[in-house]
Amino acid sequence: MSLLELRGVTGGYGPVSVLRGIDLVVEEGEVAVILGANGAGKTTTLRAICGMLDDTAGEVLFDGRDLCGASTPEIARAGIAHVPQGRGTFGDLTVDENLRLGAISRPDPGTEADLARWYEAFPRLAERKDQAAGSMSGGEQQMLAIARAMMGRPRLLLLDEPSLGLAPLITRDVFERLGEINREEGLTMLVVEQNAGLALEIAARGYVLETGQIVIGGTAEELALDDDVRKAYLGF
């Protein structure tokens, strides 16, 4: 059984429907990537999984359980972490408080150990422990958002354009860290990304979204070799 499976998911914002029936699967332990132009519905797909749309229809099967219609906090507690576009840090709270909030929905034991672990993985965050999250650079905030998501010990991590607004070198760093977490923790990830080349490097599976529908789906190699994908998203 796949860890995540979307069947005919539709949804949008108020009267505007964006998703016109999304079907996709993400297997346990793999990184999957969603590519697509601006406005294709990539962010909306992630928001639909997290119950953040006004109305979502279809099936969102997480570990066999249909989460469609559940509230965002319930879905988070079921084990899906979401790093939204623009990182979604608690800007006026400290780095330490941000990380503690990431673990707030799970029982206390282990929080301190996890905190130490993620400070070790991201030394920059340890240095800025008591600094307001909003005062850090974009790259540092992206690392913080990822570490905060990990504090909840999720089974599935959703990432919405982690490269947005970051310099190319820092983007590369972010993706290397994500690759590491995937290999070391075996954590399943679904990444929405404009930077197709980088995303396909760490991904096992890819989907191309166009005007609210999946038009191409396959392994990362198949996508990287697909003529249309290469022309539209890889630029060669």
């Binding site: 997290c50 953040m52 509230s71 965002t72 906090p73 988070a76 507690r77 972490a81 979401h82 939204p84 979604g88 840090t89 608690f90 800007g91 006026d92 709270l93 408080e97 503690r100 909030l101 990431g102 707030i104 929905s105 905060r148 909840g152």
Partner: peptide, 23 residues
Amino acid sequence: TKVGLALRGVASNPDSAALVGIH
């Protein structure tokens, strides 16, 4: 307290608070 942290989280960013499991 944890409740206090959750309260400040919601005040700071309600969307992200929901995403870490706070109602």
